[in-house]
């Protein structure tokens, strides 16, 4: 067999949309569970700052009407879902005229790029290092050096980021300390120079994520490799007189990587959450920074919108891994039972 069946894809898609629906509903419900309402709270804040707001009751009523908060909950819910389907996430309250979707669409590619590339690096490096740690033919020196490179595993990404900024951005001054690209560019453009600048700026934030993460994957991989080494087919592979390197990648890594892929799918949510602080440290104009400012400015619409988009992105990544799983593990049932 091999390959994907329609049934499998349909089931995965169903789970994907179910996740999104549950997430959207939770995002709708949670703010409404809190006492009071955002309009009153906002006007109260305004009157605190200004001392007095004229016609406060009228303003509250008017805004409630404007945002549809006077309608029954189910009407609000249906309208909210309808808007989501059209990717209308409402207007950002703190930066009033700009719609949330516009802010998100500006920030999202940066985060996907940063986290995506960092994931690619730490997954590859982590698994490779783990495999080398367990392989019997690895040179002694490598086996000593790899664990030393994993000392950052136990510190939070936040500290790793600060450390990197201090050493490479400040002391050595070889990498920029902030922003996603050089300030001489007004806006993103498709030139080699711009791409170079993006890579130069993205290096430290990506490293901050990679340094603290890859050790975890290396340890997991080593554990899997040791398990695989005890399998019957490893003895047969040895008896067959295959070339050692071929046995390493075709028999050992090929089988040990499967649970690692599952673990990756599970950890993507955490990963995106962890990248928020790294983005803030580097003032990287991605979703992390956007969420951070949204929370600081108590912009409910923006918080809801960014959270939802992050959930969509994570669910999408999980979906992609899920769909690729049958391609790498032939034993996964494709027909569905």
């Amino acid at each position: 067999m091999g390959g994907l069946s329609l049934n499998y894809i349909m089931r995965r898609l169903l789970v994907f949309f179910l996740t999104l629906w549950v997430a959207a509903t939770l995002i709708f419900i949670i703010p409404r569970l809190a006492p009071g309402d955002p309009i009153t709270a906002m006007v109260a804040r305004m009157s605190q700052q200004a001392g007095f707001v004229e016609n406060a009751d009228l303003i509250i009523e008017g805004w409630k009407e404007r945002f549809g908060l006077n309608d029954p909950v189910y009407v609000q819910y249906l309208r909210y879902m309808g808007n989501l389907l059209r990717f209308d996430l409402g207007l950002a309250m703190a930066r009033f005229p700009s719609p949330v979707s516009q802010l998100v669409s500006r920030a999202l590619p940066w985060t996907i790029g940063l986290v995506g590339i960092a994931t690619l690096i730490f997954f590859t490096v982590g698994n490779l290092f783990g495999a080398l740690l367990a392989w019997t033919k690895t040179p002694k020196l490598v086996k000593v050096l790899i664990p030393m490179s994993m000392i950052f595993t136990s510190i939070p990404p936040l500290l790793a980021g600060l450390l990197l900024v201090y050493i490479f951005g400040f002391l050595l001054d070889i990498f920029p300390q902030a922003y996603a690209y050089h300030h001489s560019f007004r806006q993103p453009e498709f030139t080699l120079k711009f791409i170079g600048s993006v890579l130069h700026h993205g290096f430290l934030p990506a490293m901050a994520i990679v340094l603290v993460t890859f050790g975890y994957w290396a340890l997991g991989m080593r554990g899997m490799m040791v398990t695989i080494e005890g399998e019957d087919y490893m003895i047969l592979a040895q008896a067959k007189g295959l070339k050692p390197f071929y046995v390493l990648y075709r028999y050992m890594i090929r089988n040990a990587i499967l649970p690692q892929m599952t673990a990756l799918a599970v950890s993507i949510g955490t990963l995106v959450g962890g990248s928020v602080l790294v983005e803030v440290i580097f003032n990287y104009n991605g979703m992390g920074t956007l969420i951070f400012t949204a929370i600081r400015e108590q912009d409910f619409n923006l918080i809801q919108g960014t959270s939802f988009i992050l959930i969509v992105t994570s669910a999408l990544a999980v979906l992609i891994i899920d769909l690729s799983y049958p391609l790498i593990d032939p034993r996964i049932s494709l027909e569905g039972k």
Partner: peptide, 25 residues
């Protein structure tokens, strides 16, 4: 030399044939 000698000089039909084949090949 041993690697090349294996399977051409001595080959094995293993004890646990159930698990002696690589599941991903």
């Amino acid at each position: 030399e041993l690697r090349k000698f294996r399977w051409t000089g001595l080959s094995l039909i293993p004890q646990g044939a159930m698990n002696s084949l690589n599941p991903t090949m």
